[in-house]
């Protein structure tokens, strides 16, 4: 399948959606989008723009995001759970990049600065955890 190259302007809605999924706040999302576009120009690549967005996010929130990662919900060893918790924001972001933006594993790897194998592991567990997370919220 051929992927159409998007300009930074085409990506504005996608980035706002990512920001809203990550923060749950309209004001914070607007601020994140503004910061992300501060250094962008018409020639900025999609990957570079998303890399900047990730930088802006972790600059302000670290790895904090609303994401329930619990051993009870996914039945995984505690050590793995702790490692997943440490990278909560990057894992959630990777899943969103894959599911919302439709990026390939290699592109996600470049954006979050981790090896492709790590990204694949994160996507595997991240999808499971995110489904649980959404179900938990829906039942709340």
């Amino acid at each position: 399948m051929t992927r159409i190259k998007k300009t930074p302007l085409d990506l504005l809605d996608d980035i706002y959606s990512l920001a809203y999924w990550m923060t749950g706040s309209e004001d914070t999302s607007r601020d994140l989008v503004n910061r992300t576009y501060l250094y962008a120009n018409t020639k900025t690549r999609e990957t570079d723009l998303l890399k900047t967005f990730r930088e802006c996010y972790v600059d302000q929130f670290g790895q904090y995001t609303d994401f329930c990662i619990s051993e009870k919900t996914c039945h995984t060893p505690l050590k793995l759970i702790e490692s997943l918790r440490q990278w909560a924001a990057d894992i959630k972001f990777s899943v969103l990049l894959s599911e919302i933006s439709g990026l390939k594993h290699r592109q996600i790897s470049e954006i979050v600065g981790k090896p492709v194998d790590t990204v694949r592991l994160w996507l595997f567990w991240g999808r499971k955890l995110l489904v649980n997370d959404i179900q938990l919220k829906a039942s709340a």
Binding site: T23, S25, R35, D59, F61, G62, T65, D66
Partner: peptide, 21 residues
């Protein structure tokens, strides 16, 4: 200058909470 010195909070700060909190 723009993100720190001229901002209301000039310090490195990644402990902000999202509205989910």
């Amino acid at each position: 200058v723009q993100h720190y010195l001229a901002a209301s909070n000039p310090y490195l700060d990644n402990g902000k909470k999202t509205s989910h909190a």
